[in-house]
C-alpha cells in the first residue's frame, strides 16, 4: 500500500513537471493556422441584421426622423393651402369645375376654412 502511495505521488510529481513545461506552438504551425483563418474568413456572409418593425423600416427608407418631420410639415401645409388657398392663388374647387364652396351657403360668407376653424374651437 505504501509502495502504491509512493508510486502515485511520484506520478503526481511527473504530472507537475509536465505541466510546468507545456509544449509551445511551433511558429510554422501558428502561421499555418492563421493562414487557414485568413483563407476561410472571406467566405462568411455578413451577419443578418435584426428585423425591425415596418414603420421603422419605412422611416429609415425615407431618411429618418428629420425627413419625416419635413414630410409632415409639407403635408400639413399642402392640406391647408388646398382647403384655404391664399387669395392670389386660383380656387382649386373652381378649377375642378364645381361651384365655389362659399356660394353654397345661404349667407354667402361661409367657406370651408371658416367651417373648419369653427370645428376646431
Amino acid at each position: 500500500m505504501a509502495d502504491e502511495d509512493k508510486a502515485l505521488q511520484e506520478l503526481e510529481d511527473l504530472f507537475a513537471e509536465a505541466r510546468s513545461a507545456p509544449p509551445a506552438l511551433p511558429d510554422h504551425l501558428s502561421a499555418a493556422i492563421l493562414a487557414d483563418a485568413a483563407r476561410v474568413q472571406p467566405g462568411f456572409q455578413p451577419a443578418e441584421p435584426a428585423r425591425q418593425p415596418l414603420w421603422r423600416q419605412l422611416a429609415e427608407a425615407l431618411g429618418g426622423w428629420p425627413a419625416l418631420g419635413g414630410l409632415a410639415a409639407a403635408s400639413a401645409a399642402g392640406l391647408w393651402i388646398g382647403l384655404a388657398p391664399p387669395s392670389f392663388m386660383p380656387d382649386p374647387v373652381a378649377l375642378a369645375g364645381y361651384e365655389d364652396s362659399s356660394t353654397a351657403f345661404a349667407d354667402g360668407s361661409y367657406d370651408m376654412a371658416l367651417m373648419l376653424s369653427e370645428d376646431l374651437q
Partner: peptide, 14 residues
C-alpha cells in the same frame, strides 16, 4: 484569429 490562436493553439497542441 491571432488572439484565439495564441490562446487555444498551444493547449490543443499540448
Amino acid at each position: 484569429a491571432a488572439e484565439l490562436t495564441a490562446r487555444l493553439g498551444p493547449r490543443v497542441f499540448g
